[in-house]
Write a protein that binds this DNA or RNA. Structure first.
Lengths: 128, 128
DNA sequence: ATAATATATTACTGCATAGTTATATAGTCA
DNA sequence: TGACTATATAACTATGCAGTAATATATTAT
């Protein structure tokens, strides 16, 4: 009984709750279709808010809010240039995450294969 | 203008919304500290609900609900044995995801390093 | 059958947040 | 300066969901 509790306590000490919350928060940033859409649009390079709004099909206000959140979580970087604001990926390894998830889902879902391409390196046939 | 719209439309066609929602849903499953705790507890092998409840420090009902969700999303597998129900990881690549995120956060947060170990292969010093 | 234990589920509360509309801020150009 | 454009923010609504308390279901043992 006592030993059992000690073992548990060790586990708990390792599981620093504050750190776990950070990890969860990061996943949460990726847990929104619209944000994934924005991130996918940034795969080929920077885009300003207007472009992202058009590409995503969302409202300007909504896209701006999502970009604000992504900036807070340091998934994207913000650069104001002239009257526009350009965003770009802060760390490309975010696409590795997306690919992994697509791969996992792809095991049970055929449709996931299509979006997997979105997070993979350049298609080469950007014109088509 | 027309060409611009076509380019956008191509992007949109590629971004199958339904598929994006699946990816988002998967990330959402990982976007909860308690669920991460449970997944981390399952790293060394299967556990029943009672053990997971004790390890996580949550209530039985809450842990059960999280396990139900993780089962739905096929992150864990459920096996009823006797009066207990045992859960185990459905696909170990979930830990790759966690490690990646810990790595990204670790770049800005020292505390993330500790939990990174939780998602890495056996510590060997399980007794300590 | 009854009791005891393990797990799941229901009904509920409170909080976080996605999306909208309207407005504010900031940069550019006349 | 004032008009114009791009982006951000505020106030609001609606929805989802984490957590709790109580109850239901199911398995085992007596």
């Amino acid at each position: 009984m006592d030993d059992g509790f000690n073992l548990i306590e060790e586990k708990m000490s390792a599981l620093d709750d504050r750190a776990l919350e950070h990890v969860a928060r990061y996943f949460k940033a990726l847990a929104e279709p619209m944000r994934l859409k924005v991130l996918s649009a940034l795969r080929d390079g920077e885009r300003n808010v207007g472009e992202l709004t058009e590409i995503s099909g969302g409202s300007q206000a909504n896209v701006s809010k999502h970009l604000s959140l992504l900036t807070q979580y340091e998934l994207v970087k913000r650069e104001s240039r002239g009257t526009s604001v350009y965003y770009k990926i802060a760390d490309p390894s975010v696409y590795t995450l997306c690919e992994l998830v697509c791969g996992q889902i792809g095991n049970r879902l055929a449709e996931a294969d299509e979006i997997k391409k979105l997070f993979l390196p350049d298609n080469k046939n950007n014109s088509i």
